[in-house]
Design a protein around this nucleic acid. Structure first.
Lengths: 352, 352
DNA sequence: TTGTATGCGTTATCAT
DNA sequence: ATGATAACGCATACAA
């Protein structure tokens, strides 16, 4: 339903924006040079108080606002950076984005949202913004494999910081991320302490370091027998993987599932419920991320809390520290602590 | 924990970014004029194929990418717009942002994320981006009251579209939003049909049209006795309002609560649970928005689904339709349909 | 088919 | 204390 009020005469017809006042217009109206106007506004050099007052009057009267575009061209930087993420509607990335935006805003930078939907073309287009120097830097929070080579060529030439996800085989990067291995370890210890000995692990795509680290920490600390299945971090894949195993009888007497993220854990939960398997009575389920929904589902999900906000904030703040000085950030890693949230989806295995 | 790998010698020392190649550099290296380079790249006029090939070779060799900043200055527009929202970590706005980003991307525009945290200063700073013409337009999705006058001055002068929220007293705007009144009506009818006659309504801030519309539709369709309490759309206020009423005995024999958004409904749910009031046994609770968590809480929340993605997408697509032609959008309203999601938090009132 | 000159709006440099 | 001029990097009107 669309209603156009124009015909109702409720709005005046002035479709085309008229040219905004420029510094020249102000200068002419105030009887001074553009240089003086510039200095009145910037305070970069002393101006006679009377002259300044006159200029300010004209500025107000004309509603003059300096064109930041021209300023950027002259300065060689835009004070805008990009944030590249796969999916803003995933609360993990939304929190990360919030941290990034906060950090950017604090330092006077704007943030362009580059939502890729895991689409390589889209990612490429956004990476083009940094090559065309429309943005001063990029916080990159998506480990989608196709772009690694592209990223490699950019990094070192342009200021890029990695958030959350290490990209396999990428050297020399500034990165802020959670301690994935410790997270996996916490889960392993928790399940082991509860008495579980046979587990199913749902991993993320093979080429993501974070996933490997989670798996490694888990397997090591758990000590028991672990079967791995590769998913894609989406709810569907968690569902499918578990359902398939259940159907094929491959689940056997496994009593625990560790999913590499909460979404896949939700999928696993759904598959188990449909199959009439009780959680945590028959099988315990653990996720990773601690997105908001994790504490709301029933049973509530035991998971590893990732400091998404801090990851975004740290990556951005670190990046800007270098960007603001016109430098490319050096390789360094900022590891943020994780925390195991024990909730209702884990319990000791049922006695057999 | 921060580890700097620089000292480890793992990265080469080239801190400062060297000047990128410009069109002049390409022209000189190819032995042609900048004009020709420009035309080879833009295709705006025919160029001899040999010349063009030579130019392209140099472009590749030098890694030349046109500075979009300079292009924007010349063109008078940046192909970037802003999206102003109060809180990206609220899934409603995250979905809206996704829709906006999709629409912007489809039309070749970038989107600057302006997260205000309901902070007026922050909002002002972001609105400044449009005055300085760094962005070509703004999708405004926050009805925080302090800025109405500021907004009024901008609208008509700059391309702004309102998403989701009508700002009270603002005329002449392009707006895309849900059918709030119909939503309220659906809830009223639902509760009435279940047999409820006395309800508590938790509204949003007084000066938001959407809230008023929801309340109006609800009160009218419900027909019974309604007590209203004003909240601020945050979970806390839903909790506080209900807890206070419960403590003061003001809840009386009310059997239903309609919160103007899901967050407040969650708060209400928590307050009722703490007071030992069963939902939906003793009291039914209804929310508004249908954020992801609504279907996950226990009991799952009956609520009105708002098409957040569509709202963001529609507002943005409409705005860009005018922006791309250098026009200021005319007043028009795009009303998107809502849908009642009946879940576990509503039931007939207990017989007394 | 190609080149020259000009302008976009600002700030820095160099003069006065 | 103020101004003239150049430069940022590109696109285009005009000329050849």
């Amino acid at each position: 339903m669309t209603r156009d009020l124009r015909e109702a005469g409720l709005t005046q017809q002035r479709p085309v924006v008229r040219r905004a006042a420029s510094i020249k217009d102000v200068a002419a109206a105030a009887g001074v040079s553009p240089t003086t106007v510039s200095h009145v506004l910037s305070g970069n050099r002393p101006v006679n108080e009377e002259t300044a007052a006159r200029v300010r009057g004209v500025v107000n009267r004309l509603g003059y606002v300096p064109a930041s575009l021209a300023r950027s061209l002259q300065a060689g930087s835009t004070s805008v950076i990009g944030l590249l993420i796969p999916d803003i509607s995933n609360t993990f990335f939304a929190e990360l984005a919030k941290g990034a935006e906060d950090a950017a805003h604090d330092l006077g930078y704007g943030l362009i949202l580059c939502n890729t939907e895991f689409d390589a073309d889209r990612e490429d287009r956004y990476l083009g913004m940094i090559r065309s120097r429309f943005i001063d830097g990029m916080v990159y929070a998506s480990g989608s494999p196709p772009s690694r080579r592209r990223l490699e060529a950019l990094m070192g030439k342009f200021p890029i910081a990695l958030a959350d996800e290490e990209v396999e085989g990428l050297r020399g990067a500034l990165i802020a991320g959670a301690d994935h291995e410790a997270g996996g370890r916490l889960v392993g210890e928790h399940l082991r302490a509860l008495g579980h000995r046979r587990a199913l692990m749902l991993t993320g795509p093979r080429d993501l370091r974070s996933g490997a680290a989670r798996a490694h920490g888990f397997v090591q600390a758990f000590g028991g027998e672990v079967v791995e299945r590769v998913g894609d971090f989406k709810e569907d894949s968690g569902y499918r993987l578990v359902a398939e195993l259940l159907d094929a009888g491959g689940f056997e007497d496994r009593t625990a599932v560790f999913a590499a993220n909460d979404l896949m854990a939700f999928g696993a939960l759904a598959a188990l419920r449909e199959a009439g398997v009780s959680v945590p009575g028959d099988v315990s389920v653990v996720g990773f991320d601690d997105i908001r929904a994790a504490s709301l589902v029933s049973p509530s999900l035991t998971t590893v809390h990732q400091p998404a906000y801090d990851i975004g904030r740290t990556a951005t703040a670190q990046l800007l520290q270098y960007v603001s000085r016109g430098e490319v950030p050096p390789a360094s890693r900022h590891t943020l602590p994780v925390e195991l949230k024990v909730r209702g989806s884990t319990a000791p295995p049922a006695a057999r």
